[in-house]
């Protein structure tokens, strides 16, 4: 079977529908394998998005973030991890989603996080994940980890998310957390109890190579945030 030609059909709705079908088909043909993510960001578009949503103050923070990327790119891995962790832990004020977004659980893109200057644990984790990925840290080695966190010495636990860095899949990860400013090994974080982890592999890859017309694109939170990141300029190129 050869890829279909839909040029003869000219109703816009129909064309979009068929284009969607066509790309789905193309996608299926490619097998949806983990394709290299061309997730290089577009500074101009990011500036425009930031200007539009958060004004000059937001752009200033964005420029600092760009400066951070430029500074850390030549640095070694440890410096990059620390630099990114510190940048967000310092810049961003922790707040519940309900307070920021008036939603129970909202996954913000790094631009939204930076623009507002506040975020909850997922927003920290996503922002760090995206920044490290931008600094050429392999996606394989990064995992977003759901953890149960005990606050202080009390027995009160809270749902929390951290970013783990795995040198190897079986290794004890380095944990980038917003509760504890320094980076430590997971095994030493007795206050955290890991439950499940995931990363962008597969989902991210699928998201990055699919058009916005993909009906699955907005089905999961993770995909939704990826989609918004694309619109804002974090991901460009197909």
């Amino acid at each position: 079977m050869s890829p279909p030609s839909y040029r003869t059909l000219d109703s816009p709705v129909r064309r979009r529908f068929l284009a969607g079908l066509g790309s789905l088909w193309l996608l299926a043909g490619l097998g949806l394998g983990p394709s290299p993510v061309a997730a290089s960001l577009s500074p101009q578009q990011l500036r425009r998005s930031m200007q539009a949503e958060y004004g000059a103050q937001g752009v200033a923070v964005l420029e600092e973030w760009f400066a951070l990327l430029d500074r850390l790119r030549p640095a070694d891995l440890e410096a990059r991890l620390r630099g990114v962790n510190d940048f967000f832990n310092r810049r961003i004020r922790w707040l519940e989603d309900i307070a920021i977004w008036r939603q129970e659980d909202y996954w913000a893109t790094p631009l939204e996080t930076l623009g507002r200057g506040e975020g909850d644990c997922e927003d920290f984790t996503i922002a760090k994940y995206v920044t490290l990925k931008e600094l050429d840290v392999s996606e394989e080695e990064l995992r977003l980890i759901y953890v149960r966190a005990r606050i202080g010495r009390s027995s009160i636990t809270q749902a929390h998310m951290v970013l783990g860095y795995y040198e190897t899949p079986g290794a004890d990860p380095l944990v980038l957390d917003n509760l504890v400013p320094s980076i430590t090994r997971g095994s030493r974080r007795t206050d955290l109890d890991p439950l499940f982890s995931f990363n962008g592999r597969g989902l991210w890859a699928a998201g990055s190579s699919q058009s916005r017309a993909d009906p699955v694109a907005r089905l999961s939170r993770w995909r939704r945030v990826i989609d918004r990141m694309r619109q804002q300029g974090f991901i460009q190129g197909e």
């Binding site: 299926a28 097998g31 995992r143 980890i145 783990g164 004890d172 095994s187 499940f196 982890s197 995931f198």
Partner: peptide, 23 residues
């Protein structure tokens, strides 16, 4: 052969504490 449906498998990592037990 003509239709040939091909769907990539679903993958997820099983976590054993901080470590990954497997995929």
């Amino acid at each position: 052969d003509l239709v040939h449906i091909e769907v990539p498998p679903g993958r997820a990592v099983v976590q054993d504490g901080w470590r990954q037990l497997g995929t």
